[in-house]
Design a protein around this nucleic acid. Structure first.
Length: 231
DNA sequence: GGACGTTGGGCCGAGGCAAT
DNA sequence: ATTGCCTCGGCCCAACGTCC
């Protein structure tokens, strides 16, 4: 299947006969492999009729990923722990579907051991009900932090008041199951901390700003939570 | 519209492999 | 040794798209 995926990634539309020849299997087997790739959410498109064949949907360039048993286990446990700690985006669905995909291709003996571990595993913290941030917002702000570019955000505060703000974002912090962004509110000229799940939209703006001196983003958030910096 | 090339899907049998 | 499951190959027919 991975060899088939590599052939399709080389571009163009390829017939079953050509793929079967390259793989050294029968055409019927190629169609079965394609079915399995589609089951794994690989966007393989079929084109009927003369000059038809199989091809990958435009833009799909994810390489075949080979993980050892231990690596797959580590990724799954990380996803489980991240979900439990509230460190997910888009209402947990991306994390859950990623887990399901890896779980689906795990060897049976590893899957059994994983299930055994998850049954025995307990967390000392009580599960929280966290509002997860929008993935697009998270990525846009991360990009603004990295390139020191101002970012325009639409923010709803705890009282439900909505406002447009321009932020010089210093960094993103995950704390107690929530995501925060720290930075200078350009309108009032003061450092602020915003909960990411309360930001509905984020757009990077032209220009740049100087990196602040002093504590990092995490220390700034902790200061906010202890009331030493206006929130 | 018919011929042709191609995919889609069902069915069956052979062979490999693990469990019993 | 037997059984059950899975993969693969072969065959068939239907459906679809293109070409003449």
């Amino acid at each position: 299947m991975l060899t088939l995926l590599e052939l399709l990634q080389s571009g163009g539309t390829r017939t079953v006969a050509e793929l079967a020849d390259r793989l050294g299997v029968e055409g019927r087997t190629v169609r079965r492999y394609v079915d399995q790739l589609i089951d794994l959410d690989v966007p393989v498109e079929s084109v009927r009729g003369r000059y038809g064949g199989y091809r990958l949907a435009p833009g799909y360039r994810l390489p075949p990923l080979m993980l050892s048993d231990d690596e797959a286990l580590a990724v799954l446990l990380g996803l489980v722990a991240g979900r439990r700690a509230g460190l997910t985006t888009t209402e947990n669905t991306a994390s859950e579907t990623a887990s399901a995909k890896i779980r689906r291709v795990l060897p049976k003996h590893i899957a059994r051991r994983l299930d055994t571990l998850l049954e025995a595993l307990a967390f000392t913290d009580q599960p929280g009900e966290f509002d997860t941030p929008d993935a697009e917002v998270l990525l846009a702000i991360a990009d603004a932090v990295r390139h020191r570019r101002p970012v325009s955000i639409r923010y709803t505060d705890r009282d439900g008041r909505c406002s447009e703000r321009t932020l010089h974002a210093y960094g993103i912090v995950a704390h107690s199951g929530r995501w925060y962004v720290t930075g200078k509110d350009a309108q009032i000229g003061k450092d602020r901390t915003f909960r990411l799940d309360r930001i509905a939209d984020a757009r990077t703006l032209p220009g740049s700003f100087e990196a602040p001196v002093g504590p990092g983003p995490a220390q700034r958030v902790v200061s906010v939570r202890h009331g030493r910096v206006p929130a």
